[in-house]
């Protein structure tokens, strides 16, 4: 049975990855999950300088999901390079570093610092709904998206994944814009902007007022968007949004995703990534599928 998939020339042992921001740099979850068994670990977004993030409360549970507004708290690229990359290189999984910034220059500087590092892919977070500057500002306008993609490509040695926001009218147009800018792969979806009000305190449930909705509640939206993007462009797509089990992951794969990422699912069960992988293998065996690539985008 072959579970290897190809993302922009990088061969993953299997299609199961982690979704940025839910898994830190893997250290905390490594007590539950042998990281070598994952296709790739995707780190939390890292910026050129440390970011403090938003005030608390930063999260709220919603029906079948959660809203978060962490605000991309991160230790900055220098400590990340010194501490997190050496940790991740101990494992066989591929390393994907998620990059965030306030300005185009911020992204380029981080990408440049990572160019000589032993990381396999870079994912550009141009879709975070929880920071005032940067983030989603680059991800909601096709011209801005194409431009920042072109810019980071100038500094990158590794293939670039552009992570798309679902908070747009036409995801296919955004997929095409990133591809036109030279993106090597796409990942989607980031969280959907949402709001929860605490009626007892008569206030917003998260301090940032709005936050990103994730979890099983958003899965049908995510599958639809992956399908639309896969039909619009020819570069590989990493699908995510509410995956908690193998059935969820297979929906994304059949919609056109070459790999999938587990995010909020990790909070529900720290073993979620491994359960997804095991379930995919069981499905392949049961249905006599020799190669996972046979079913990528098989639903047209």
């Amino acid at each position: 049975m072959n579970t290897k998939v190809n993302i922009a020339g990088v061969i993953l042992n299997n299609p199961v990855m982690t979704a940025s921001g839910t898994f830190g740099s893997g250290e905390e979850y490594s007590q539950f999950v042998n990281l070598s068994q994952l296709g790739a670990v995707v780190t939390k977004g890292v910026s050129i300088v440390p970011w403090e993030g938003n005030p608390t409360p930063r999260i709220a549970e919603t029906y079948g999901g959660m809203i978060n507004a962490i605000g991309l708290q991160n230790p900055g690229i220098d400590l990340f390079i010194e501490r997190d990359i050496p940790f991740l290189t101990q494992f066989d999984s591929k390393i994907v570093v998620n990059v965030c910034g306030k300005t185009m220059e911020d992204y380029c500087e981080v990408v440049e610092k990572l160019s000589d590092m032993p990381v396999d892919l870079l994912e550009m977070n141009v879709s975070c709904p929880n920071v005032k500057e940067g983030g989603i500002a680059f991800g909601q306008n096709p011209n801005a998206l194409e431009k920042i993609t072109k810019e980071v490509k100038k500094f990158a040695r590794q293939p670039i994944i552009m992570k798309l926001s679902p908070n747009v009218t036409d995801i296919a147009e955004m997929a095409k814009a990133a591809t036109a800018g030279g993106a090597d792969a796409l990942s989607l979806i980031n969280t959907l902007t949402g709001m929860k009000i605490d009626i007892n305190r008569k206030s917003f449930a998260v301090a940032n007022k709005t936050g990103g909705l994730s979890g099983p509640a958003i899965k049908p939206v995510a599958v639809r968007m992956v399908y639309e993007a896969a039909n619009a462009v020819d570069i590989p797509i990493i699908g995510m949004g509410g995956i908690v089990n193998a059935e969820d992951a297979l929906e994304f794969i059949m919609a056109g995703a070459s790999a999938v990422a587990v995010g909020t699912g990790n909070f529900i069960n720290p073993y979620a990534t491994l359960n997804v992988l095991k379930g995919i293998e069981e499905y392949m065996e049961k249905n006599h599928i020799e190669d996972i690539n046979e079913i990528i985008g098989c639903v047209r």
Binding site: G24, P57, I70, F267
Partner: peptide, 9 residues
């Protein structure tokens, strides 16, 4: 959320 230090909530 995660309870183990990964999510920074």
């Amino acid at each position: 959320a995660c309870g183990i230090g990964a999510c920074l909530s």
